[in-house]
């Protein structure tokens, strides 16, 4: 489902950042661990097409994200990639339900209710996201990420702000949702608690940044 080759990123005014080749199949999960500043988020944004690599390929379902124009990338991401961020971002003026349906590629209401029910936020759909607890907010972002039935689910430090109980729940939900959508799941984190939850992990080394 996801395959990267020779992925390199160039920060403006910095040295090139090389990433190891990755491959994750449909329904599989991969944990990418690493300390802060080692380029975890950069890697995730490259995989999501939010950043453009200096060299290399990001193949999602056979399409090379790296070769797409920004507008094509946005559309592709909207259709095939679900993102969960470190902080739960919302359109504050919209209700939780409208936030779930915010993507132009979202299906209609019934699916939102169904997904929200599955994630235990069914009763919160008509509240503003600002009124939810942190745990509820994170569930809502997971719900949004899977609304458009993605092939690839990417999560950036999804548990760093959560206590143990919520942490376990969020990871369980991410795994369940990835499985339900038959999507590849990639989580980047420095949270060692997750090692217990996801078998396949990869340690990203700060050393891979060249001087």
């Amino acid at each position: 489902m996801l395959k990267t080759t020779n992925l390199t990123f160039q920060y403006p005014g910095g040295g090139p950042l090389r990433f190891p080749d990755l491959e994750v199949g449909t329904g599989q999960a991969l944990l990418i661990l690493g300390e802060s500043g080692c380029g975890k988020t950069t890697l995730l944004h490259l995989l999501a097409g939010l950043l453009r690599p200096a060299a290399g390929e990001v193949l999602v379902g056979g399409s090379n994200l790296a070769a797409m124009s920004p507008a094509q990338g946005d559309r592709f991401r909207g259709q095939y990639i679900g993102l969960v961020y470190q902080k739960p971002y919302f359109i504050e003026s919209l209700t939780v339900l409208d936030n779930l349906l915010v993507s132009p590629f979202s299906p209609k209401n019934e699916k939102a209710a169904e997904v929200a029910q599955r994630l235990g936020i069914g009763a919160l759909l008509h509240k503003l996201p600002g009124r939810l607890s942190v745990g509820e907010q994170q569930r809502a972002t997971i719900a949004r990420a899977v609304m458009s039935h993605p092939k690839l689910l990417l999560a950036d430090e999804p548990t760093s702000a959560l206590d143990h109980r919520n942490c376990a729940t969020v990871i369980r939900l991410l795994k369940e949702e990835a499985a339900a959508n038959n999507a590849a799941l990639i989580i980047v984190t420095h949270d060692d608690r997750l090692k217990r939850e996801i078998g396949t992990s990869y340690e990203l080394q700060a050393a891979s940044r060249e001087p």
Binding site: A48, L50, P70, A71, D74, R75, R77, G78, Q79, L83, Y89, F90, I91, E92, V102, S103, P104, F105, R144, S148
Partner: peptide
């Protein structure tokens, strides 16, 4: 800024 970035990340194009 975050909302606009979020909109981009869920599939809105810059023109939108």
């Amino acid at each position: 800024k975050y909302e606009l970035a979020l909109l981009r990340s869920v599939g809105y194009r810059p023109g939108q």
